[in-house]
Amino acid sequence: MATDYDAPRVREGEDEKNDTLVELDAARSRTTTDLLEEDTEATDGLTLPGADLSDLSLEVHVIPQQADEFSCIGCFLLVHRSQESKPGTHLCRDCAA
């Protein structure tokens, strides 16, 4: 006797469910809508996805590279001269390892 491995499996005592794709999609959208309606309160210090952040200022003060720093050619980080693997290589100890 051949076994159809693609056929849905039904355990003893369970009714076979004949849910259509439309019914499953409708049930999923109801569940998602219910969850969204429950979690509408914003918590302190957290911003929700899609929140309006247009009133925030994104200013960053950039300090130029100092004389005792170099830019690593391996990881592109600005590192202190004491972290250079060999003098003049512009490669930090982490990248040289």
Score class of each variant (00 low, 15 high):
Thr3Pro: 00
Thr3Arg: 07
Tyr5Ser: 12
Tyr5Gln: 12
Asp6Met: 11
Pro8Phe: 11
Arg11Tyr: 15
Arg11Asp: 15
Arg11Gly: 15
Glu12Val: 11
Gly13His: 04
Gly13Arg: 04
Asp15Lys: 10
Glu16Gln: 12
Lys17Ala: 09
Asp19Tyr: 14
Thr20Asn: 01
Thr20Pro: 00
Glu23Phe: 02
Asp25Met: 04
Arg28Asn: 05
Arg28Gln: 02
Arg28Asp: 01
Thr32Gly: 01
Glu37Arg: 09
Glu37Leu: 11
Asp39Val: 01
Thr40Trp: 02
Thr40Leu: 04
Glu41Phe: 02
Ala42Tyr: 07
Asp44Phe: 04
Asp44Trp: 08
Leu48Gly: 06
Leu48Cys: 08
Gly50His: 01
Ala51Arg: 08
Asp52Cys: 07
Asp52Asn: 14
Asp52Val: 14
Leu53Ala: 02
Ser57Tyr: 01
Ser57Ala: 07
Leu58Met: 08
Leu58Ser: 09
Val60Met: 11
Val60Ser: 10
His61Phe: 09
Gln65Val: 08
Ala67Asn: 13
Asp68Ala: 07
Asp68Pro: 01
Ile73Phe: 15
Gly74Cys: 03
Leu77Val: 08
Val79Glu: 08
Val79Asp: 04
Arg81Cys: 11
Arg81Met: 03
Ser82Tyr: 05
Gln83Asn: 09
Gln83Ile: 03
Ser85Met: 03
Ser85Ile: 03
Pro87Leu: 06
Pro87Thr: 12
Leu91Trp: 06
Cys92Arg: 07
Arg93Thr: 11
Cys95Gln: 13
Cys95Pro: 05
Ala96Glu: 03
Ala96Gln: 06
Ala97Val: 12
